[in-house]
Nucleic acid binder design. Structure first.
Length: 930
RNA sequence: GGGUCAGUAGCCCAAAUGGCAGAGGCAAGGGACUUAAAAUCCCUCCAGUACGGGUUCGAAUCCCGUCUGACCUACCA
């Protein structure tokens, strides 16, 4: 056996050992080990890109691995799986650019990722590995889509969920949808059409980001601020396309409300709340004045401030509003048409760009404000968006910033209807206040007119809504920013839809028994590019002619040729991990209840199944919202037993790195940088460089490869360093030079057990430290109890950096002591083992243990031994330190004060003045106030 | 423009409910060992907590304002 800490030999040895012995296999319900309480700890699974991992990626994986290993030693049956988010744009884009089939690049990338993760000693149960692009997996993604397609949302449905909570609203099978008699009377096609309108998955014409040069639709993230594709810088156009949509908006309220029960970081909850964007307000109906085609038309607006209705001095329609051409007066028609066309030309981004200047045109038409029967002019302006509310607003320039800007630009009337607290100007005051001029004093135009004067804003809102509702002039309502989920992509590398179209255009869902609808192997998976913005999209699958056409009972059907977005596969993978090889069902119900169920410490059932979910904050909204949505549908349909997928969420910070740039602003690789007098210079050109801490990224040329670090220091050192850098949730810069610190620590741990090789001959010398005996040094033992306590508590709260610091303290003391008991070293190895598993397994074995340290029960500590008998406390006079005293830990306040005032410096300060008050902070300080 | 979080030695970071600003690591300096270097070991140095107010016996911690940085969001009526 080697005397040296040869991490390059022993780390692969233990990784092989764990693999071969199935050390980290999680027991399924029914197996004996499943009697233990379960713990499900999950990482955001990665998208395996071609570049492989850099040291920033595994930060969260290391953190969860430590917790998984810790929980195993605490007697839990731990589910800790890993898989691949393997469908999606980057693989396909790479394939398009390099001519390699995405299946091949994906497999290569996945293998690289797995190799790199195994090198880190992560204790995944690899038997559960999955990839979203495998047919056995996406079969169930398609199955869920069918469930969603075959459901409708019944907002009235009252039921009690498995957790015993009363719930209003549920997804229900489409055949339970009540069909109105008049629809029924029109026969089966009408019934089918009615159902189609209510399904949770439906087809609709919606505006998409269409990039003809790339031949595809792009997601918003793929479109630059200039309205071009972020790859290739090609123009992108907004155009309507018939797309699959998922009715996530039906779940807006439940998605919002259930956030409350989740143990998630507040900022993430806030981001989800903002994204859902619930606002309570009212619809108000304005009648259009005059004769002609516009007569009798109603403009319905949405407002969150019905209390300011008396201040509505004009109205604005979005340029796309259907009433614009109808109400525009002939003399204004030309001007309005020009404006509307201009607005259409502009991209969404141009329109919302921060050019403060408001634009708009007057239509010539007027409407009547229902609350005071005054005429208000109707304008068209692009600051009103067609996609929110009703696409039209009542403008209250007195108390809305945007309306005020517009009114000032066009010289429209501004009136005060809300009185702000004293000292603030009413003009542009948008917060709650007290209603005034509603109506103005002395004006009382008609009987039954609403009077809001002197009412605080919340009450004025209620009163006005009631007034509107009684007269059928509007109603209270709630709006959401959340839109239905656009679910089609004109791409190859994704899940095919299990949908067929008949020759007459009717939609037929593929039967569950026929799943999966396999993605066809096609030669040409490129999208068809064009310079013509009006070119029809041709999806790659639409060219797979054999696949596309299906014959059934003499009828010819055409398959849906779009694919699902990348989010689809990641919406439910946490469920599949529980039962990854089940060929009969997505998940066995008993297995689902075992892994996803559970209770909080106080005994109440948890709303979420995964006990801990760790990943970066960049998926705060989309992935986490989509997964919650799917989970709730599955919950309503009885497939899962918890209302939420992820009980506790933790966001790790980002590892940053120094990025260097030359005077032209080009990034420079680290290898080409040298330091002179702490200033970076280019090694070859000698130019002075600028340095900034930025995100670690290939494009910034500041990535650090884990393979190189592992080769030089070992995986245990890398794991330890990443955890030691700072708090897990914070972003912090990588400094390779700092690694040596934790590496020295591990070297010290090694030498505690294995003595340095004697001069010359290593082979015959003892390989255990002969100093290890059975005598315990009191000081080291006490410090060990303190260390066990601190490490236990710190792991539980994810403060690995301070846990490591405490272990360094212990090793530094232990190394100084000549007397060290074997069991002290063993207990120390146990608390170190979740963080640095390889070295601990090796030393554990060398100390004579036959079984893995991974399941050795976590050592306990004696609280009495963690407390010192005597403590030093500071003595303050009037808050200033004047001296220190050492007292017994259980000294009374009076004893402490007596001792304190005897200190010469303290006595001098007191100078005979009586002590008015003595504040004693136990074990810390005493403050004497005179 | 709005929101969220953060700012402590040259660097990374610690400091329960406010209670002695320092646990730990890196770097730097000195020393021991060595022919020398590396490695190892020992010792030392350095800030008053971004800035300005306030509350308090006492503030890195709480409150207000300002500055800087990161992230989210962006005409959502």
């Amino acid at each position: 056996m080697s005397h040296a800490y040869d991490f390059n030999a022993l780390e692969p040895k233990w990784q092989r050992h764990w693999d071969e012995h199935g050390t980290f296999r999680a027991a399924q319900p029914g197996e004996p080990e499943s009697d233990a309480p379960k713990f499900y700890v999950l990482d955001f699974f990665p998208y395996p890109s071609g570049a492989g991992l850099h040291v920033g990626h595994p930060l969260g994986y290391i953190a969860t691995d430590i917790l998984a290993r810790f929980m195993r030693t605490r007697g839990y049956n731990v589910l800790h799986p890993m898989g691949w988010d393997a469908f999606g744009l980057p693989a396909e884009q790479y394939a398009v650019e390099h001519g390699v089939h995405p299946r091949i690049t994906t497999r290569n990338n996945t293998e690289t990722y797995q190799r790199q993760l195994k090198m880190l000693g992560l204790s995944y149960d690899w038997d559960r590995e999955l990839a979203t692009c495998d047919a056995e997996y996406y079969r169930w993604t398609q199955w869920i889509f069918l469930k969603i397609y075959n459901s409708w949302y019944d907002p009235e449905y009252r039921w009690t969920d498995p957790a015993g909570r009363p719930v209003v609203g549920a997804a229900r099978p489409i055949d339970k949808l009540p069909i109105p008699p008049d629809v029924k009377a029109q026969g089966p096609p009408a019934i089918e059409a009615y159902r189609a309108e209510h399904r949770l998955a439906y087809l609709a014409e919606v505006p998409v980001n269409w990039c003809p040069a790339l031949g595809t639709v792009l997601s918003n993230e793929e479109v630059t601020n200039e309205g071009r594709s972020n790859r290739g810088d090609q123009p992108v156009y907004r155009r309507p396309l018939r797309q699959w949509m998922l009715r996530i908006t039906e779940y807006a309220d439940r998605l919002l409300k259930d956030l409350e029960f989740l143990d998630w970081p507040e900022p993430i909850k806030l981001m989800q709340r903002n994204w859902i964007g619930r606002s309570a307000g009212a619809y108000v109906d304005f009648a259009i004045e005059g004769s002609g085609p516009a007569a009798g038309q109603i403009i319905r607006v949405f407002t969150t401030r019905p209390d300011t209705l008396f201040g509505a001095t004009y109205m604005v329609l979005a340029p796309e509003h259907r009433l614009v051409p109808i109400i525009t007066r002939p003399e204004r028609r030309e001007e309005v048409r020009t404006y509307v066309n201009q607005a259409k030309q502009k991209s969404e981004l141009d329109r919302t760009a921060d050019n403060k200047q408001k634009t708009g045109v007057f239509t010539g038409a007027y409407a009547v404000n229902p609350v005071n029967r005054k005429r208000v002019p109707i304008w068209v302006a692009d600051y009103v968006l067609i996609s929110y509310g009703t696409g039209s607003i009542m403008a209250v320039p007195g108390h809305d910033t945007r309306d005020l800007e517009f009114a000032e630009t066009f010289g429209l009337e501004v009136v005060a209807v809300v009185k702000p607290p004293t000292g603030r100007d009413w003009r542009g005051f948008v917060d709650d206040g007290v209603s005034v001029n509603s109506p103005p004093d002395g004006e009382d135009h008609f009987s039954g007119q609403c009077v809001l004067n002197d009412l605080p804003t919340p009450e004025a809102k209620c009163k006005l809504i009631r007034w509107l509702e009684e007269r059928d002039l509007g109603e209270g309502t709630t709006q959401y920013k959340l839109r239905d989920w656009l679910f089609s992509r004109q791409r190859y590398w994704g899940e095919p839809f299990p949908i067929l179209y008949g020759e007459d255009g009717r939609i037929v869902a593929v039967d569950e028994s026929e799943l999966p609808v396999a993605l066809p192997e096609i030669e040409d998976f490129r999208p068809h590019a064009s310079d013509d913005p009006d070119a029809q999209p041709q999806t790659p699958l639409s060219r797979a002619t054999d696949w596309l056409t299906v014959r059934r009972g003499g009828e010819v059907f055409r398959r849906e040729a779009n694919t699902m977005p990348q989010w689809a596969g990641s919406c439910w993978y946490y469920l599949r991990f529980c039962d990854a090889r089940n060929a009969q069902a997505l998940i066995d119900p008993q297995v689902e209840r075992y892994w996803m169920g559970g209770k909080l410490p106080d005994g109440t059932p948890k709303v979420g199944g995964v006990d801990l979910y760790v990943g970066g904050a960049e998926h705060a909204v989309l992935h986490l919202l989509y997964a919650r949505f799917w989970h709730k549908v599955l919950y309503d349909l009885g497939v899962v037993s918890t209302p939420e997928p992820f009980h506790r969420l933790f966001n790790q910070g980002m590892i940053q790195a120094h990025a260097f740039r030359d005077p032209r602003g080009m990034y420079v690789e680290h290898e080409k940088v040298e330091f002179r007098d702490n200033t970076p210079y280019h090694k070859e050109t000698g130019q002075a460089l600028t340095s900034a801490v930025e995100k670690m990224s290939k494009s910034l040329k500041n990535v650090v490869n884990p393979d190189a670090i592992i080769h030089e220091y070992g995986a245990d050192t890398l794991r330890l360093y990443e955890m030691y850098m700072g708090p897990l949730e914070k972003s912090k810069p990588w400094n390779t030079q700092d690694i040596i610190g934790v590496h020295r620590f591990l070297q010290r741990v090694w030498r505690l057990v294995v003595p340095p090789a004697p001069e010359g001959q290593a082979a015959s010398a003892p390989v255990l430290n002969p100093a290890l005996g059975d005598v315990r040094d009191e000081h080291v033992e006490r410090l060990l109890h303190k260390t066990i306590k601190k490490v236990t508590e710190d792991i539980e709260r994810f403060a690995y950096n301070t846990a490591i610091a405490q272990m360094i303290v212990w090793i530094n003391e232990a190394a100084k002591t000549k007397v060290l008991a074997r069991d002290q070293v063993e207990r120390f190895l146990q608390i170190l083992s979740p963080l640095a598993p390889h070295i601990c397994e090796e030393l554990w074995q060398r100390l004579g243990h036959k079984s893995s340290i991974a399941y050795a029960p976590w050592p306990s500590y004696d609280a009495a031994l963690t407390r010192d008998d005597a403590v030093e406390i500071a003595v303050q006079v009037l808050g200033k330190i004047r001296g220190r005293i050492t007292v017994a830990a259980d000294a009374t306040d009076d004893q402490i004060v007596e001792l304190a005032r005897k200190i010469e410096a303290v006595a001098r300060e007191l100078a005979g003045r009586p002590i008015k008050r003595a504040i004693v902070a136990r074990g810390r300080l005493v403050n004497l106030v005179v």
